[in-house]
């Protein structure tokens, strides 16, 4: 068996396809590409495809890692070409290589959030990000029960940078990601919206990188 980590970009209207639906989409794509995939054994065999981290609905990605398992080795170039020949609009396999980090090493993610200046001024955004008490509601579990928890977002913003682009503002932000604690930019913007008392919808949000605990690139 040969494990390969492919990096897939998800751009444009396909960002509205949910994580669960992406899974089925990739399953069908590898079938169409006739990649010699390893199938799980058991009553209902399915190809081994593992999404390392869900991309929130409405967020684009430039290099989302997906692990697949092959039964025979295959030149990476050919793998890329065969997959890209059958991908739906908006999905592209950018690279393929043997995995280096373990999936559990993902600790943070970096996002580029584009905002319309007509919706929010740089001063308002800076105030919200530095106020120290930015909160949002997040679903969580208490035992087996699903509950809503209030999260202090401010404590979790690892880094941010704000760039003035004229009509638009570009917010680059690093938020916790991975299997232990996740905060996504949609929740962040909900928190900002809550503080301002009006709904701010960024026209474009892109996940640009996944990072390890020391903020080095996850590869």
């Amino acid at each position: 068996m040969y494990d390969v980590r492919i990096r897939v970009s998800k751009r444009g209207r396909i960002k509205f396809v949910s994580h669960l639906d992406m899974f089925r989409t990739m399953q069908r794509a590898v079938r169409r590409a006739e990649i010699p995939l390893w199938y799980t054994e058991g009553f209902n065999p399915h190809p081994y495809i593992s999404y390392l981290l869900a991309l929130p609905l409405g967020v684009e990605g430039v290099a989302e890692p997906i692990d697949i398992r092959l039964v025979e080795p295959m030149p990476m170039e050919e793998l890329l070409d065969r997959l890209n020949a059958v991908m739906p609009e908006g999905l592209r396999v950018e690279s393929a290589a043997a995995p280096f980090h373990k999936p559990a090493e993902i600790a943070f993610a970096r996002y580029d959030v584009t905002l319309d200046r007509a919706d929010i001024t740089p001063e308002e955004l800076t105030e919200a990000l530095t106020c120290g008490e930015l909160t949002c509601e997040k679903s969580g579990k208490s035992g087996h029960k699903k509950i809503m928890k209030t999260v202090n977002v401010s404590e979790h913003i690892r880094e941010y940078r704000l760039e003035d682009k004229g009509e638009q503002l570009l917010l680059t932000v690093v938020l916790p990601a991975g299997s232990t604690f996740n905060l996504n930019p949609i929740q962040l913007m909900e928190a900002v919206s809550g503080r301002l008392g009006r709904r701010i919808y960024p026209p474009l949000t892109v996940r640009t990188a996944l990072l390890c605990e020391d903020l080095s690139e996850f590869i």
Partner: peptide, 19 residues
Amino acid sequence: LEKILPLVQKPARYTGGEL
């Protein structure tokens, strides 16, 4: 459309772009 899609259930019903 981009602004309203995040507000509705199953937005991929309305985007097109399927294989």
